[in-house]
Measured scan of single mutants.
Amino acid sequence: NQASVVANQLIPINTALTLVMMRAEVVTPMGIPAVDIPRLVSMQVNRAVPLGTTLMPDMVKGYA
């Protein structure tokens, strides 16, 4: 099973992602693959992402 990107903290809307905000976890359903974490750094979320939420492609501006 491939790990997905999960929020390590509450990420407010329009926040630029940093490594500290994300962790890799095997979850269902799968979200953004953990291998993409370096690519996500400095991209912004388009909604508030609660702690423990799996990041989906439509939550990150410019990802999809």
Rank of each mutant, 00 (worst) to 15 (best):
Q9L: 10
I13F: 08
N1I: 15
N8V: 10
Q44H: 07
V20I: 15
N1T: 15
V45K: 00
T15R: 08
M59T: 08
D36V: 04
T54D: 01
G62F: 05
Q9I: 11
Q2T: 12
P57Q: 11
L10Q: 10
I32S: 01
P50A: 09
L40P: 00
A34Y: 08
S4H: 01
T15W: 04
Q44I: 12
V41P: 03
I11C: 05
M21K: 03
P33T: 13
P29K: 10
P12V: 06
A7R: 02
R23W: 05
M22K: 00
D36N: 07
L19C: 05
L55A: 00
T53N: 14
Q44M: 09
A7M: 05
T18S: 09
R39G: 07
Q2I: 13
N46R: 08
S42W: 07
T18Y: 03
V26K: 03
M43G: 06
S4W: 02
Q2W: 14
V41G: 03
P29W: 07
A16E: 10
P57A: 13
A16S: 14
N46I: 10
L10V: 13
V26P: 10
N14C: 06
V6S: 05
A7L: 03
P12N: 11
P50L: 06
V49W: 02
R47Q: 14
V6M: 11
M21E: 02
Q2A: 15
T53C: 04
T54N: 02
I13G: 09
I11N: 00
P57N: 09
D36M: 03
K61L: 15
R47G: 13
M56Q: 14
Q44T: 14
Q9W: 09
G62K: 10
P12A: 10
M43S: 09
P50C: 06
A3G: 09
I11P: 00
L17Y: 01
I13Q: 11
L17D: 01
L55T: 02
V6T: 09
I32K: 00
V5P: 01
E25T: 04
M59K: 02
E25W: 03
T15L: 04
V27K: 08
V26G: 11
R47E: 15
M59C: 06
P50Q: 07
Q44W: 06
V27M: 15
L10I: 13
N14D: 10
V5D: 01
V41H: 08
S4Y: 03
E25Q: 04
A34E: 15
